[in-house]
Write a protein that binds this DNA or RNA. Structure first.
Lengths: 204, 204
DNA sequence: TTCGCCGTATGACATCTGTCATCCGGCAGT
DNA sequence: ACTGCCGGATGACAGATGTCATACGGCGAA
């Protein structure tokens, strides 16, 4: 038999991370050689442990799993990347694939798919939930411009126009213009709804 | 040695649930006898499998793990209850304890604490993160009245006053009054911020 | 090069939101 | 019986937010 597959696990919640490690540990051909809890520790750990497959959660401190994936893909293109996430947001799938991910799994898929995905990406396959792929194609690309996205993201926590203007070095009127166009593009009626919808679609 | 401890696992994300099962499966004295993915399936499963300890995630479809805990505590007070959650919100801890929980764990605690907690609650101990307990005591009780909470929860998704009034069978003015008092109690400047703060504290 | 889009900005306007004073009925303490 | 709080409501007002027209410079595509 070929040597074991060296896997890195990146996930900020230790209980989940160690549980996933226990799960993968049950597979004879897979070995978890490294665990990190922050996105910005991924690249160094991948280098140090000569990892074959990196399993990356998206929501992490430091940087997101998608950003970490992009870093690894650029520096070490041979390393396979599996992105794992709680939220099946089509926009996440899109950006993950653009960042060079080989697989995209949601955490409410059966656990068996995890080990399967690791083996498949190593064999050169791509693993994507077909439902999610369809959803990603159906909803189209992010209609928001960079600035609209920035302003909307900043507005999502309840900041007022004046605060947004100060934080982003814009005039208050401009802030309102961006939010207004974002609201129209998303076909909603106020910034809170716009933020919610954009978040759900993975557009923030 | 005494017979194995029978554990039920309630968690909606199958990958996490099965991973936690794998983790607990490594402990010789613990056996996961049932797994459910919805809060409203907990009570029946506890009954059917004569469970010793129920491990409950809070965020679940059907009903929350805290509500499930209350049901089990009322119907079968001998069953020990461990509440497990992603979010260390002091308000959650408070309501979980009021619902009869014996332990409260956050998912970013070390995995080893899980099995420990199962054994400890069975021995009659209570297991609570001391940091979180301090935070819960420090922030005091939920200052919002029932109606204020309801209105704020409904407002959190970006609904307009007219929609809230219609949905809750109130006048628009009353909706604004409740939101206004909630905003003042939370010492913030608008409904979006109020919703965010209340959510963070576990008050919604 | 011209067209269109993006980023930025202003001013005017309408509507929504938040605040405040005030009111009523019910209900729990004292 | 009185006081205070909660749920519910109204009206008036100020300020925040959303819309629209319009403008300008830059930059990429046709």
């Amino acid at each position: 038999m070929s040597p074991t597959i060296k896997v890195l696990l990146a996930e900020d919640q230790s209980m989940v991370r160690e549980a996933l490690a226990a799960l993968l540990g049950l597979e004879p051909d897979i070995e978890v050689v490294a665990q990190v809890a922050r996105g910005d520790e991924v690249l160094a750990a991948v280098r140090e442990h000569e990892v074959d497959v990196a399993l990356l959660d998206i929501e992490m401190p430091g940087c997101t799993g998608i950003e970490a994936a992009a870093q690894v893909h650029k520096a070490l293109p041979a390393v396979k990347l599996v992105v794992l996430t709680t939220f099946g947001r089509p926009g996440y799938l899109r950006t993950a694939m653009e960042a060079g991910a080989d697989a995209f799994l949601v955490k409410d898929a059966p656990a068996a798919q995890l080990a399967q995905a690791v083996r498949k990406v190593l064999a050169g396959e791509r693993v994507i939930d077909p439902t999610l792929a369809a959803a990603a194609l159906a909803e189209g690309a992010n209609p928001l411009t960079d600035r609209e996205r920035e302003v909307l993201r900043a507005a999502a926590d309840g900041s007022t126009n004046a605060e947004l203007a100060a934080a982003l070095h814009l005039s208050q009127g401009t802030v309102r213009n961006y939010l207004s166009t974002a609201i129209q593009k998303l076909a909603v009626r106020n910034r809170a709804e716009a933020a919610r919808i954009a978040r759900e679609k993975g557009w923030l």
